[in-house]
Measured scan of single mutants.
Amino acid sequence: MGFKLLSKLLVYLTASIMAIASPLAFSVDSSGEYPTVSEIPVGEVRLYQIADGVWSHIATQSFDGAVYPSNGLIVRDGDELLLIDTAWGAKNTAALLAEIEKQIGLPVTRAVSTHFHDDRVGGVDVLRAAGVATYASPSTRRLAEVEGNEIPTHSLEGLSSSGDAVRFGPVELFYPGAAHSTDNLIVYVPSASVLYGGCAIYELSRTSAGNVADADLAEWPTSIERIQQHYPEAQFVIPGHGLPGGLDLLKHTTNVVKAHTNRSVVE
Rank of each mutant, 00 (worst) to 15 (best):
G2H: 15
G2N: 14
L5Q: 07
L6F: 04
L6G: 08
S7V: 11
S7P: 01
K8W: 12
Y12M: 14
Y12L: 13
L13Q: 11
T14P: 06
T14K: 07
A15R: 03
M18T: 04
M18K: 02
A19Q: 11
I20V: 09
L24D: 05
L24P: 04
F26A: 04
D29C: 09
D29F: 06
G32Y: 01
E33S: 07
P35F: 11
P35I: 11
S38H: 03
S38D: 05
I40G: 08
Y48A: 03
Q49S: 06
Q49C: 03
I50E: 10
G53R: 06
V54G: 10
S56M: 01
H57I: 15
A59G: 05
S62I: 01
A66T: 06
N71A: 06
G72V: 04
L73H: 00
I74K: 01
D77G: 05
G78V: 08
D79L: 12
E80I: 10
L83Q: 10
L83G: 03
T86W: 00
K91M: 14
A94P: 00
A95C: 13
L97A: 03
L97T: 01
A98S: 03
E101S: 04
L106P: 03
V108W: 00
R110P: 00
V112S: 01
S113W: 01
T114W: 00
H115P: 00
H115K: 00
D118G: 13
D119G: 01
R120K: 15
R120V: 07
V124L: 03
V126G: 12
R128L: 13
V132R: 02
V132K: 10
V132W: 09
A133C: 15
A133H: 01
Y135M: 14
Y135Q: 09
S137N: 14
T140R: 02
T140F: 03
R141N: 01
R142L: 02
E145T: 10
V146F: 08
V146T: 09
E147C: 02
G148L: 04
N149W: 07
E150K: 04
E150P: 00
I151S: 15
I151P: 01
H154F: 15
S155Y: 08
L156M: 11
G158R: 09
S160W: 06
S162H: 01
S162F: 05
G163S: 04
D164W: 09
V171A: 04
V171W: 01
V171P: 01
G177V: 03
A179M: 15
H180C: 01
N184L: 03
L185Y: 13
I186N: 07
Y188M: 06
C199P: 01
A200L: 15
I201D: 08
I201A: 06
Y202Q: 14
E203T: 15
L204K: 15
S205D: 07
R206I: 11
S208T: 08
A209Q: 12
N211L: 09
V212K: 07
A215H: 11
A218G: 09
P221W: 11
T222M: 12
S223R: 12
S223P: 04
I224D: 13
E225A: 05
I227L: 06
Q228D: 12
H230P: 09
H230Q: 06
H230L: 12
P232Y: 10
E233Q: 07
F236L: 02
V237E: 04
V237W: 11
P239V: 11
G240I: 12
H241G: 02
G242A: 11
L243W: 12
L243Q: 15
G245A: 08
G246Y: 06
L247Q: 03
D248V: 07
D248P: 15
L250P: 12
T253I: 03
T253L: 01
T253A: 03
T254L: 06
N255P: 15
V256Y: 13
V256N: 06
V256F: 13
K258W: 05
H260P: 04
H260G: 06
H260Q: 02
T261C: 11
N262K: 12
N262H: 09
R263N: 15
